[in-house]
Amino acid sequence: MIEVVSAERCVTCDKCVLACPTNVFDLGPDRIPVIARQSDCQTCFLCEAYCPADALFVAPHAHPEPAGSPLRDERHLAAAGLLGSYRREIGWGHGRTLGASLAIGPDVLPGFGRPAAPATASPATAPPSPERHDR
């Protein structure tokens, strides 16, 4: 769930308020967004993708982080390189290469899962099966 709005980094562009599909944010008095309805957050990470200032952090748990969690601690997150990391990976932001243009994933293995019997085909030799690609 969304855990951090960095007042220090925020450039008050309102993008997250508009782009969050579940309307989690309201504008605060200083125009810095506040997490007004955290329980509505669907943990989709898209606000981070849209934030030009790397000011937001979404923890991957679908429930709120407990008090004292490092995933609520802006300084820890910045030091760990996690602020803005999704935006960086999809290549959004000035001077970056769009991640979509590099998105060549591996072949998904036939049978799409481990067979009940001991595996016969090793991943390295298994023939690709493009029809079964799903995400």
Partner: peptide, 12 residues
């Protein structure tokens, strides 16, 4: 406890 239901790579 997460939301990320991306299943393709579990074939590995």
């Amino acid at each position: 406890f997460t939301s990320v239901t991306k299943t393709a790579y579990y074939s590995y």
